[in-house]
Design a protein around this nucleic acid. Structure first.
Length: 911
RNA sequence: GCAGGGGUAGCGAAGUGGUCAAACGCGUCAGGUUCAGGGCCUGAUCGGUUAGUCCGUUCAAGAGUUCAAAUCUCUUCCCCUGCACCA
């Protein structure tokens, strides 16, 4: 059977019959499944497939359970990455073109035509759609849209108007990493070396200079150490300036002033030579002490304010700089006590490490060590917060100083210096009218938590992560200056940011295919209010009733699927926005399912490694069903799964084996079921019973092991044990069970087995309890054990058996097991046996065996059951070892060894 | 640092108190096959031992609870992920 041909055949038929294009059907219960929509800036690879495959398996399972199931798909094109990709292509970026060529097989000529964002989107979304069709996702493609479609834009703008009405949209200041040359926000992919600029608040403390209106402003990460300041540092090689800031005149480095101007609004009034500063005696605002100003080379005019306060007891650099100018012996007031150190931990460590000077690279190591240690273990020994932890005092002191006007804070690049690709030094800018969504509103948070509580979360142990994220969300900027998507309705020069426009789009799917005959101009506030909220002036509009009905039929989303990394943003935003926009709790999300990633041959797929397997290539090479299988069955839902050739090959060869067996059992026969068929069906019905629960819990891996791998090994055993194949009944049930995993083969098998209609729409098999037969299964286990024992023994004695005799333990030995259960001690058992007047000599040796596992005794099969099983296998065993095989009860023994037979462990005599 | 998740045989990965020397898959080794290779089949794969057995030592390290621990408790070490404007 050629898998690609089968796939084509069945995907063709599904499409032809519009099998997966459901419409509201009030007579049937619905299930609505969505997965995070793809971002088409490159072709799909197998890593993209896991979430959708999981969702599709689930959707297909629910269909078998009789639900009317909707599984739609669309494309997310919002934001800058598509623009960036188009730009790279336009610039003929060799890296990008090389990856397309080598990995995805897109020749440079073809790639060159994709320099327009919309062309690029069209091409890659088409690739994704094709791949998704080829792999057999049961998606309703009628509902497809792009997040830059005009009608979708109107929907999103409506959403934002609602958020504003609710008071969730606010305007404020926001610090961002900024390139002063490009006059643009900077993120990781805009910087040299792809450094992600981290912004960080830093405290600046004012040291007023007596007798003048001036203040020196010192930057510090450790305001609590202000008690221990001995002096101020400036760099004599740097230029310093005076600047007006909020009615005061402050002194700081010129470079610092330029950088900070953006956020502080400084007016530079003149230069001031470092030599003049060195003569000043500024006042510590906390201790009111006058301190000298000294020079130090470690002070960088670009970091902070270019002025640093010196706390030699706790800052290695400060101590080193003092020592460098011959003042290493001045008194160093202690601020923080640190276990294992004396009153000046910085000096102690510096001496211990033998750091040479402030320019010694070791100085940084010492600094890091002291800072982290003191932050976590340090306790204040002076001041208002004496006795408190340094880390707590730090915040409080900074707040106190700010409240008194003796300090302020600035925002800097924590991991600086970072450079823009244009070469400019990245600084921090404060955006004055940035729009935010305020996820900090307490009622909103409370609703989000309520929703979470009502929701089913799979895997269950990720629930805490959602809760954490809900708590952690504060205000979140929701617009950007550039990118594709939707214009922000209250400032059309801005675009709605990419995570903010994809929070309730699942509602849009319910009507997206019904909008053809509705003009965009008609889709106003009242339109969306009517369709999605059922209120407003058009709520009774008959024309909109169909849309409203469709929405109400499908909503809420019964299961949302995504990779686990989206819990921290998208999935939590999804919860927030649903509970925010939709008052009716019946419309709130019901379930979220998250999964891990796909590894390629054990390592993370990456462009630089070149180990990316394009999805369409995988499908072509291994077939759709094998690819589906290999993507999701290798690991638990949460953990990463490995896609590799040998796993895929293993799946394929198993499918081939099954195909062969199905071919042999195409038609129903009237042949009766023998013991081995009964065994197989017993196993199958047990699996069916378990499978339903596993499907409900999306225990994909367990399912795969149980209803696929395990079934294959059952079938292999069956093939050995049976003389002729009689599997029609078995497959008729099993094929439906496995169909969600391998829909194409399942359809093909179903057809071969004379099934009617699509297997995709059959009923999930019911476990037939009358077919579950414990003794048959245990009997078969026994046969397997005996089979392998014969193998072992004949190998050990180094000869092929010419005759095998199997002695089955007598009934009295079995009775002993029951007695042992009631009397779980050696003496107890012996007494009980004596009371039954058993042959105590024989009992003793059996009892010894039993006592080994007295706490976990299982009652063995009866002698008759064991005999029946083994006699049934006589022919099989004889064939296996090409010799005569005889099964006898122990009582008919012709050999001493028979005595050592035990329940579940017949004696075997090989001659 | 904070939060979350982990450390099990050569590898991946099950296993949450007894039936565990530990599923399953891969790899490796041996044998078989109308056998180039590959595939397929059978067996082995902690050490020792044996007519199918039994014994010893294991589940990051250490301590404890228990008749019984990979599984429960405590301590330590190590690893991974996230920490915001990035889709």
């Amino acid at each position: 059977m050629d898998s690609n041909a089968i796939e084509k055949k069945w995907s063709g038929r599904w499409a032809e019959k519009a099998a997966f294009q459901p419409d509201p059907d009030p007579g049937r219960e619905k299930r609505y499944i969505t997965a995070a929509f793809p971002y088409p800036n490159s072709p799909p690879h197998i890593g993209h497939g896991r979430t959708y495959t999981t969702a599709d398996i689930y959707a297909r399972y629910l269909r078998l359970k009789g639900y009317n199931v909707l599984f739609p798909m669309a494309f997310h094109v919002t934001g800058t990455p598509i623009l960036a990709m188009a730009k790279h292509i336009a610039a003929k970026d060799p890296d990008v073109l090389g990856i397309f060529d080598r990995i995805y097989g897109i020749p440079p000529e073809k790639a060159a035509t994709l320099s327009e964002p919309r062309t690029l989107v069209a091409y890659f979304s088409d690739e994704i759609e094709k791949a998704m069709k080829e792999i057999g996702y049961s998606i309703d493609w009628r509902r497809k849209f792009y997040s830059y479609d005009a009608k979708f834009n109107l929907f999103i703008q409506w959403q934002f108007r609602k958020l504003k009405e609710l008071g969730y949209l606010i305007k404020g200041e926001y610090p961002i990493a900024w390139c002063p040359a490009d006059k643009n926000a900077v993120s990781a992919h805009d910087t040299r070396g792809d450094v992600d600029p981290e912004v960080e608040d830093v405290t600046v403390i004012k040291f007023p200079v007596p007798g003048s209106p001036l203040s020196l402003v010192a930057t510090t990460y450790r305001p609590e150490t202000l008690y221990g300041v001995t002096n101020i540092w400036v760099n004599p090689k740097a230029k310093y300036v005076k600047a007006r800031y909020k009615g005061e005149t402050i002194i700081l480095a010129e470079k610092a002033a330029q950088v900070l101007d953006l956020q502080l609004g400084l007016e530079i009034t003149g230069e001031i030579p470092a030599a003049d500063i060195l003569k000043m005696r500024p006042v510590n605002p906390l201790t009111k002490e006058s301190v000298p100003v000294y020079e130090a080379s470690f002070v960088s005019p670009e970091v902070g304010t270019g002025i640093v306060m010196s706390v030699p007891a706790h800052a290695p650099l400060d101590y080193l700089a003092l020592r460098d100018i011959g003042k290493g012996n001045i008194p160093m007031p202690q601020v923080v006590s640190l276990k294992g150190y004396g009153p000046a931990p910085a000096r102690e460590l510096v001496e211990k490490m033998g750091v040479k000077s402030q320019d010694d690279p070791e100085a940084e190591k010492a600094t890091k060590e002291i800072y982290t240690k003191e932050a976590h273990e340090g306790v204040m020994v002076v001041g208002k917060y004496k006795g408190q932890k340094a880390i707590e005092a730090k915040e409080k002191i900074a707040e106190d100083l700010k409240a008194m006007g003796k300090a302020f804070h600035i925002v800097t690049i924590a991991n600086g210096p970072v450079y823009c690709r244009c070469g400019a030094h990245v600084v921090v800018n404060i955006l004055k009218d940035q729009w935010f969504i305020d996820y900090g509103v307490p009622e909103w948070k409370a609703k989000a938590k309520e929703c979470l509580e009502r929701m089913r979360i799979i895997p269950a142990d990720t629930r805490g992560e959602y809760l954490y994220t809900i708590d952690w969300f504060k205000t979140r900027p929701c617009t950007r200056a550039a990118g594709l998507g939707t214009k922000f309705p209250f400032d059309e020069t801005k675009m709605i940011e990419a995570l903010s426009d994809s929070t309730i789009y699942m509602a849009f799917y319910t009507v997206s295919h019904l909008l053809h005959d509705i003009q965009a101009s008609e889709m106003d506030e009242a339109f969306f209010d009517a369709v999605f909220l059922g209120k407003g002036p058009r709520a009774k509009d008959k024309k909109l009733a169909r849309l409203r009905d469709s929405f109400l039929y499908w909503y809420p989303v019964d299961s949302r699927h995504s990779a686990g990394d989206l819990i921290r943003n998208h999935l939590t935003l999804y919860i927030f926005n649903h509970v925010g926009i939709f008052d009716d709790k019946k419309l709130w999300p019901r379930q979220i399912v998250t999964n891990g990633f796909v590894l390629m041959d054990g390592t993370k797929m990456s462009k630089s490694m070149g180990n990316i397997l394009p999805l369409r290539k995988a499908i072509k090479e291994y077939g759709a069903d094998v690819t589906r299988f290999s993507m999701v069955c290798g690991a638990d839902l949460t953990s990463d799964t490995d896609f590799n050739k040998s796993v895929a090959e293993g799946v394929r060869s198993r499918i081939l084996l099954i195909s062969k067996l199905v071919q042999d059992s195409e038609h129903k026969t009237s042949k009766p079921h023998g013991r081995i068929e009964r065994w197989l069906l017993s196993r199958l019905n047990r699996k069916i019973e378990r499978a339903e629960k596993m499907y409900e819990e999306l225990a994909i891996r367990e399912l795969a092991l149980d209803i696929f791998y395990d079934v294959v090994s059952d079938l292999q055993w069956y093939a050995k044990r049976s003389s002729e194949s009689n599997l029609h009944d078995f497959f008729h049930k099993w094929v439906v069970l496995i169909a969600p995993f391998m829909p194409h083969y399942a359809e093909e098998y179903w057809e071969m087995l004379d099934g009617k209609g699509f297997v995709s729409f059959q009923s999930f098999p019911k476990a037939d309890h009358s077919k579950i037969d414990d003794s048959v299964e245990r009997g078969e286990e026994l046969i397997r054990k005996v089979h392998s024992d014969i193998e072992k023994i004949s190998e050990l004695i180094g000869k092929k058996p010419s005759k095998v005799t199997i002695y089955v333990a007598g009934e009295w030995k079995r009775e002993l097991y029951s007695l042992a259960k009631a009397n779980p001690s050696f003496e107890g058992l012996m007494k009980a046996a004596a009371a039954k007047k058993m042959d105590m000599k024989a009992v003793q040796s059996v009892a010894k065996q039993i006592m080994k596992n007295v706490h976990s005794i299982t009652v063995p099969l009866s002698q008759k059951d064991e005999l029946d099983a083994l006699k049934d296998a006589e022919g099989f065993l004889a064939k296996e070892y090409s010799c005569k095989v005889e099964v006898l009860p122990e009582e008919q023994a012709k050999h001493d060894k028979a005595k050592s037979s035990l329940p579940d462990k017949p004696a075997i005599v090989i001659e």
